[in-house]
């Protein structure tokens, strides 16, 4: 079961996901959280995936959808704290070249400036 914790640092909305981003549950939670941020007018969204334990192809698909939806609405969506296995999956799907990925929250927040 995935959970999200949302907070802001300056004008950056940080969405921290915990648990599994997998088909049917976690992907839906992620979709809802990003949509809420966009509906609230957030234009700088940072997804913290440091506590994600598993991601499957549906979860990866949801990351792509979130990125596309944000970009289409003039917002920026970036990733931080990728666990090695998620970094690995983004690499083999070549999506690591699409997302802006940061090692630390501080570095990621500053990148939005």
């Amino acid at each position: 079961m995935a959970q999200v914790n949302r907070r802001t640092v300056g004008d950056v909305s940080i969405v921290a996901v915990t648990g599994k981003i997998t088909i049917g549950v976690g992907d839906v939670v992620l979709r809802g959280a990003v949509q809420d941020e966009l509906d609230n007018g957030s234009t700088k969204i940072l997804l913290d995936l440091g506590s994600v334990t598993t991601i499957d192809s549906s979860g990866i698909g949801e990351l792509v959808s979130a990125y596309t939806r944000a970009t289409n609405r003039g917002a920026k969506l970036k990733l931080v704290n990728l666990p090695p296995k998620i970094h690995d999956i983004l690499a083999i799907t070549q999506l690591i070249t699409v997302f802006d990925v940061y090692d630390t929250e501080d570095e990621a927040v500053k990148s939005f400036a």
Binding site: D56, S57, S58, I60, G61, E62, V64, S65, T68, I89, I92, T93, Q94, L95, T97, V98
Partner: peptide, 16 residues
């Protein structure tokens, strides 16, 4: 090309 659609990655992951 990089797949930027929501689906079509299952067999890519299985292969890996």
């Amino acid at each position: 090309k990089v797949n930027l659609t929501p689906s079509g990655r299952g067999l890519v992951l299985i292969d890996h």
